[in-house]
Design a protein around this nucleic acid. Structure first.
Lengths: 236, 236
DNA sequence: GTACGACCTGCCGTTACGTCCGATTCAAGG
DNA sequence: CCTTGAATCGGACGTAACGGCAGGTCGTAC
């Protein structure tokens, strides 16, 4: 039989934790001395060992309590916990790659804007869509992505010029530019269903935020998008 | 300018979270209407995006607040967070393998005892020592481990017989048995420094618990260990 | 006798909000 | 203009697993 301090020291827990377990009924000492001091026996020690093990697996004390009562619950619970841990590991891994991508970014002063974009990205794309977009980018390779950015810039400039000079939406010049624009987008979208509409929503609702990362104003961008719509409508 | 409900819906947060951010001064709305309703502007929206991004990286609101104030703190903090995430990933991975080992165990009714042993194991070996022991077991292969268990059982029986029949500690029979015992232990211990003494402490302080998993009583085991000590002492 | 350590109960604090409350206030319809 | 339902307000309490502190009791050693 051991006092609470001895048990705590022997099992590398704390007196406070043991008292907490007693409070919530998870580990009641075998007996109390007449003056109220807790006395723990070997059976309590074993139960404590089990509790600490299950705790290292990330289970809540409530789960531990119920699994220790019901004799057959252990296997089911451990399997479930393994699944949870695997899921958490995947999430962690995704976070790590995202963070690494962010830190590998060229411009170290651009973190704040990058963070904004990531959150917006999260808000408009489902995780599956994000995965497919990332996979698509990876499949295309970094130089293809850079090249796409360049093409995108020149296309925006072209369309912007069309808007400014009042080129008709059914002109060959406008059609050609919009066709290239759509092809460029398609190269990144073919992998995931619904990414096109999500991109469009993000574009519509956040042109101000997006323009903050680009050399054009939100007004100009909205004009370009509207013009592209008109060109597609004229094309039929 | 948006109301709190609109902002919450647009950014997929909750009204309560936004009020919380306001409370702790993390995200104050640009203005209030005369009647006290919060009004958020584009600047608030951007700040919220940043906050949500950093939150997904597992940072506390306090860390986020300070990193958003100090201009250069972002890179340092993100790097630190990446390190933390990597560490957590390793821990999670270790937990997963441990759980998997437990679930791969032959006897499904033996979970509770296995959990006890794991906790004791944790209490007496440092993580590095545990790694080296596991690596050692893996290097030896499962059939070698099984064979060692068999040898261990017969050795205990032999020594137990010596104790019962009062064989002298300096007899050839006793010396031979103890030499084999030590060799068997050495096969598992050579990889990690300090594992021998840890094993010994665990053995000394928990013979009752250990005996619960073996076909001998704690009394008998303590007798065997003491006898082995005597034999080693006689050997010099 | 008293000093010291170990123990007791009870209460507040932690994180990032969720939930519920009663009291206003807004927007739309009759 | 009045009503009604939805949105908003501030405040309070709850969460998980303890940590830490206060004030009191107990046992032992000097």
């Amino acid at each position: 039989m051991w006092t609470i301090g001895q048990l705590a020291q022997a099992t590398r827990t704390t007196v406070r934790a043991l008292r907490h377990y007693d409070e919530i009924g998870l580990l009641r000492p075998t007996e109390r001395t007449p003056n109220g001091h807790r006395r723990y026996g070997p059976e309590d020690l074993r139960r404590l060992y089990r509790i600490r093990s299950l705790r290292t697996f990330g289970m809540s004390l409530e789960e531990i309590a119920s699994s220790l009562e019901v004799p057959g619950a252990m296997e089911t619970l451990l399997h479930a916990q393994l699944a949870i841990l695997s899921h958490r590991a995947e999430e962690l891994d995704a976070l790590k790659t995202q963070l690494t991508r962010l830190l590998d970014h060229d411009d170290p002063d651009d973190y704040l804007k990058a963070l904004e974009m990531m959150a917006m990205f999260d808000a408009y794309f489902t995780p599956e869509q994000q995965d497919s977009l990332a996979a698509r980018r990876e499949a295309l390779g970094p130089e293809a992505v850079e090249s796409a950015k360049m093409q995108f810039r020149t296309l925006v400039e072209t369309l912007l010029a069309c808007v400014r000079t009042g080129v008709a939406p059914d002109s060959a010049e406008a059609r050609e530019a919009v066709a290239q624009w759509d092809a460029l987008g398609a190269a990144f979208h073919t992998a995931g269903a619904g990414t096109e509409t999500a991109t469009r929503r993000m574009w519509d609702e956040n042109s101000e935020e997006i323009s903050a990362r680009m050399p054009w104003s939100a007004e100009e961008l909205r004009g370009v998008v509207a013009f592209a719509d008109a060109v597609r409508a004229a094309r039929g």
